[in-house]
Amino acid sequence: MRALARPAQYAALLLYILFLGFPLLWLISASVKSSRELNSLTVSLLPQQWHWENYVEALSRQGLVHSAWNSLVVALVATAVVVVIALPASYVLARLRGKVRAAGVGWILVSQVFPVVLVILPLFLILRTIGLADSLAGLTLVHVTYMLPFALWMLQGYVSAIPVELEEAGAVDGASRVTVLRTIVFPLLAPGIAATAMFSFVSSWNEFFFALVLLQSPENYTLPITLKMFIGGEGKVALGPLAAGAVLAAVPSIVFFTLLRRRLTSGLMAGAVKG
């Protein structure tokens, strides 16, 4: 029974990886195929002829590199801000009982359900009033605002999962509340924080609609906007260069995942056990 379980687990994992990874593999494959090959009925993972020109064309497109830089700045700043301001607030939300919590949770849900198309106009006008329309700072702020509900919601879930008794034990030892938070609660939350940070980064990095509508000047465009420009009218898609651009666009996310992976996986319960 036990001996069988491991191979079965590996097989299942392999299937998952195949399912999740195959589209990226196919994207990479498309990025090195010529337009002629992409528009044929031949099915092959490896190209008949390596067509690196797609990367050259993608990179020579107006502003691809510049917009990637914009996206990186917006995503990193937004992620940092979200984590820093959501952490304390989510703690309060999780430990509060009664009406305030219900209101908070209710708000989080409603704000996520209401269609964004209906909110975008008033939002645009408010941003312009405070002088932040068509600016990366404004876009960052919007990303922060719209990722916050999720961050709060998730983090308060993780906080709820920490037994109050642990904190009380800390408090009995005479530690102040801030110390309890810093030394007991936040370390326990590290995996949750890593998950939230990954989510925030990816959401901001990939976000399209706000960026489309709020940014007017090409020098402020973010990567999804620039990539979308590979898709022309009448469904004309420059598939090869688009795939090449998309592969390049995937790199920062993967680097970010790799960096945060350790946070996500390290056995942080150890800290609590030692304490």
């Binding site: 399209f208 609609f209 509508v213 007017q216 000047s217 090409p218 979308k228 420009m229 898709i231 022309g232």
Partner: peptide, 16 residues
């Protein structure tokens, strides 16, 4: 010239 993408331009225009 302000270059914009064809896809999604309607949404952009109506907001503008």
């Amino acid at each position: 010239v302000v270059q914009a993408g064809w896809d999604g331009v309607y949404d952009k225009l109506i907001t503008q």
